[in-house]
Design a protein around this nucleic acid. Structure first.
Lengths: 134, 134
DNA sequence: AGGGAAGTGTTATAACATAACGTTTTATTA
DNA sequence: TAATAAAACGTTATGTTATAACACTTCCCT
């Protein structure tokens, strides 16, 4: 794995296609939906999508939302702490947050039980402020 | 919905079957795995399993692990705060924790952005103390 | 130029989940 | 206790999400 700059320059054709599709979307997108959108650009099989998504996750450019089976752009490539996703049940929008306290809380809980954490998933379902207001 | 006592007495045949299968398991179990185990007791279709699992979740006896597509018994029917699941990559075991600080942190993050939370998912992947020791 | 690693394409299949419909059981209350 | 509403159940078919296996290509480094 190279440094950030090199990484960004090194994006492949499929990676760029998937990224572009994710940028256009205002919500997380499923793998088969991405496939449908990218058929016109030559992608034909689910695996091409899944592989590309795995690569983009590895590059920390994309997150997978486990409770939605869908993917979304990372808000900011530079964070190290655990992202918190707030997922609106009504409009489907997702916001990504970071919270130092939460991250350290999580670390404490792990440590207390001797568990060595690797990857943390925090997803909150509910209603966003806009939907709540309307 | 009745009180806890009544609820427990009211478990149906399918609910009892699924619960028993989950109790025997030392790890979260997938829906089709449950189906396989319960075929000998007359369950034949996935939907019978999925429906029963939904009922047990509604009764707060069972949790779904979103990142595993699997289900596990709730450690304790009496909690109200958000459960934290620590999932071992090596042995597959899962531990359920509760942490007041974490729960209130989560609530704060939601509130700050005007998001009204409904359901929270916290799943940590890593290595449990036993696997880490060996 | 040679060799290894990463990326690609394709077919087939596995794993996970729900729609739609009708029947049976259970609980409620008139 | 008969009528009826609600919950649970069973079954077939289908939809959705994800991976296995294998062969080929491209890129990069020495």
């Amino acid at each position: 794995m190279k440094n950030k700059l090199t990484k960004k320059q090194a994006l492949t054709k499929n990676q760029l296609l998937v990224l572009k599709a994710l940028r256009k979307a205002k919500q997380p997108v499923g793998a088969y939906e991405l496939l449908d959108q990218l058929r016109e650009h030559g992608l034909k099989a689910p695996l091409q999508i899944y592989r590309t998504l795995d690569q983009l996750i590895e590059l920390k450019i994309v997150h997978r939302l486990e409770s939605l089976n869908a993917w979304t752009l990372c808000c900011d490539a530079e964070h190290d702490s655990t992202p918190v996703f707030a997922i609106c049940n009504d409009c489907g929008s997702v916001n990504e947050f970071f919270d130092e306290n939460l991250t350290s809380n999580l670390a404490k809980i792990s440590k207390k039980s001797g568990f060595v954490a690797d990857r943390s998933i925090i997803e909150i379902h509910g209603r966003c402020d806009q939907c709540e207001a309307s």
